[in-house]
């Protein structure tokens, strides 16, 4: 009769232990900061792997999201005779929410899963152990550059997403639906605040970058070193990242924009 209770307790303890391991890994990652700084070459390779290779998908998605916002926003706003406010609507939704969040989801799917698979495979093929045996700390040498690569790439990708999205909205609203181009920009400039909107958006995407790469690295590093374990780690990376990003987005929004 007490079995279900015991099972619940066991899984709770296991989850807590995993959380603890993840935090120990984070401490290790932060501890590798200096090693990464003195080897910028490793960092550049990771900015390439996480940032450059994700640019295309992020830019294309940003363009389409911006165009959809332009269309939908126009239909809704024109009913109130406020179509000139399209610029504000597009820019505010992109800079505050969609830019950081959608970029984080895309990066989790594109780069996070790849990171988890890469680290998991390095573990399964004993490469991490081999580094240990060469007296090289794999956390400092392999994981930390990836961590900072993600942390650096995410806000830049989110900025590209928002910028391209704003242009996409301009293309639809001004180019296609015939709004006044000056109104699009001036309304936007009047209502989008640099520190409230843009800086907060950047802060969000930095936080998301940290969380997504952290989850990916942890899932890879803690993966069971088998083919099945690695595949499970990649799946978990995407699922956990998506949940963490959306949950954190709510918390951050409440902190930043709720007065």
């Amino acid at each position: 009769m007490l079995d279900p209770l015991a099972r619940l307790g066991r899984s709770g303890i296991a989850a807590l232990a995993r959380l603890g391991e993840a935090h120990l890994l984070l401490v290790g990652l932060l501890g590798g900061t200096w090693d990464t700084l003195v080897r910028p070459r490793l960092l550049i390779a990771q900015v390439y792997g996480i940032g450059v290779l994700s640019t295309l998908i992020v830019v294309v998605s940003g363009l389409f999201v911006g165009m959809v916002l332009g269309l939908q926003g126009y239909y809704v706003l024109s009913q109130f005779g406020a179509a000139e406010s399209l610029g504000i609507m597009v820019a505010a939704s992109l800079v505050r929410e969609l830019g950081p969040v959608v970029t984080a989801l895309l990066v989790a799917g594109r780069a996070g899963s790849a990171l988890a698979a890469e680290i998991g495979l390095m573990k399964a093929t004993e490469q991490l152990s081999a580094l240990e045996m060469m007296a090289v700390d794999p956390i400092k040498r392999i994981l930390t550059p990836r961590f900072y690569g993600g942390l650096l790439a995410m806000p830049l990708l989110a900025a590209m997403f928002s910028a391209v999205g704003v242009l996409g909205g301009y293309f639809i609203g001004v180019g296609l639906l015939g709004l006044d181009g000056g109104a699009y920009w001036s309304q936007m400039q009047a209502k989008i605040d640099f520190s409230d909107d843009i800086v907060n958006g950047v802060i969000k995407s930095v936080v998301f970058g940290l969380v997504v790469t952290w989850i990916a690295l942890f899932q890879g590093y803690a993966a069971t070193p088998t083919a099945e374990g690695v595949s499970r780690a990649t799946t978990r990376t995407v699922v956990h990242s998506a949940l963490a990003v959306l949950g954190l987005d709510f918390v951050l929004t409440a902190l930043m924009f709720g007065e």
Binding site: T125, E126, Q127, S129, A130, L131, E132, M133, M134, A135
Partner: peptide, 19 residues
């Protein structure tokens, strides 16, 4: 421990070369 490991070499089953 790392100083000690520098005096040890280990040959893994798979070779474990960095790919």
């Amino acid at each position: 421990l790392y100083r000690l490991r520098m005096r040890m070499g280990m040959l893994f089953q798979s070779g474990a070369l960095l790919t």
